[in-house]
Design a protein around this nucleic acid. Structure first.
Lengths: 237, 237
DNA sequence: GGAGAAAAGATTGCATACGATTTTTGCGAT
DNA sequence: ATCGCAAAAATCGTATGCAATCTTTTCTCC
């Protein structure tokens, strides 16, 4: 009975919080761009979709609003975030500040097991790049983010790790919105270079490579305001 | 109209969210150490105390749990966070990574109005240090944190600003728990030096001073495990 | 008297209900 | 046909109720 109806939504998460499970699925959907920015996420809809009451759906949406992935307006509802160019710049400014330091910390804590995990991660990343199609592109963005999350977990600071989770999620949104080309293939090779530096314990080099990597990602964005930002906001789309 | 109702931190909060107001008050109480680490915050108690239902009290507690100021255990309730020495170290490691960069950004954006605000802030800080007594010490810790928050707001990156809000709040908890002496008077002069550097537009110097300042704060902590950490955790007090 | 088990009490997780607010729809006037 | 306004529908904010879980007390048995 449990197995049957909890097939897809709400993974296993028996003792876990249901709201958390819903948040995770919604976050994946947002980061994967299956939910477009501006989409309304009504409490009732989310609730019926995941077969829970509005109470827990609301809790999930509140969590996402804390992470900056949805914006809530009083008495109006929750919407998938539509980050402005300015917000996008701030996301990357934050990453430039934090990630080089994370790379240094990670370099000092790398173990052979970590190296194996990174190689598996990069393999998967390469596979998605080889594929074509919109679905592959989404997976590609997600895999690219996972590299940075893996690095954060190796660094061993859970606070910074959580910050990075938020920043990576928001970056994915920004890239989906403002991304120009397939810089990702270039990003893939940069990831490999970073791993090389980490593997050889060259913390400084890893840090510098990371900084450049972030610069490259941001440089690929087209952050000019398009077709009147006020109108866009007013129309909420 | 705008001026009238936005007098101060919206205690009345007519159109504001009530849960948010409760969160703010609870946060202040935690940071001020009026609520000791480990204290249980039951939904019902908080609700009756603020004259709201459990629903909104619960929302406030959820917010605080996101910020790391309370820890919630399923089916058991919410407790004021009791950061471990390891957690304390990670808080300061995060600050060492972020705040020097914030100082640089702030130095580049300082205006005369900002300088005035900083001077007022430092005046108040000095006043609390001059006073004696436990209440003054609490205000002193809070004022010291406010300096860093003011700096973050000047830096102009709302994402980093929110990160700093969390880090400063957790720092206050840590200092209250593990703080040794009145390093704060020393911290006050360091704040003044930082302001000097900011005022003269010397970003590099401000950044370096900030890094040392954080080091000094952490150096004043006694992060040795005291009287068995496992026992302490087990007894939850 | 102490240890263990069962019951009572307290607290959380979740669903539902109801008033308030916003958005949409329907209808008549210009 | 368009605009304005009022009623209806939808949605949110919040309170409350019930079942599940945890804690404490009490009772029994050794």
């Amino acid at each position: 009975m449990n197995i049957a109806d909890q097939t897809f939504p709400a993974v296993d998460s028996a003792n876990e919080d249901r709201a958390q499970a819903i948040r995770d699925q919604l976050r994946d959907a947002i980061v994967d761009r299956r939910l477009a920015p501006g989409t309304k996420l009504s409490e009732g809809e989310v609730g019926t979709l995941f077969d829970v009451s509005r109470t827990v759906a609301r809790a999930a949406l509140q969590m996402l609003s804390f992470e900056g992935l949805v914006r809530t307006e009083r008495n109006r509802g929750a919407f998938v975030a539509n980050p402005s160019p300015e917000e996008a710049r701030q996301v990357f400014a934050s990453r430039r500040l934090i990630e080089p330091g994370i790379a240094i910390a990670a370099a000092e804590r790398m173990t052979p097991a970590h190296v194996v995990a990174f190689k598996a991660q990069l393999d998967e990343e390469g596979r998605f790049i080889a594929e074509r199609g919109p679905s592959a592109r989404r997976s590609e963005i997600k895999a690219s983010g996972d590299f940075h999350l893996l690095l954060a977990s190796v660094a061993g600071n859970v606070i910074l790790q959580r910050f990075m989770e938020e920043l990576v999620a928001r970056s994915s949104l920004v890239i989906a919105l403002y991304g120009r080309s397939g810089v990702s293939s270039c990003g893939h090779s940069e990831h490999m270079n970073i791993l090389e530096a980490l593997e050889s314990g060259n913390a400084e080099r890893a840090s510098a490579l990371m900084l450049h990597h972030i610069d490259h990602i941001e440089a690929d964005l087209d952050l000019r305001v398009r077709s009147g930002p006020a109108l866009r906001q007013a129309l909420e789309f």
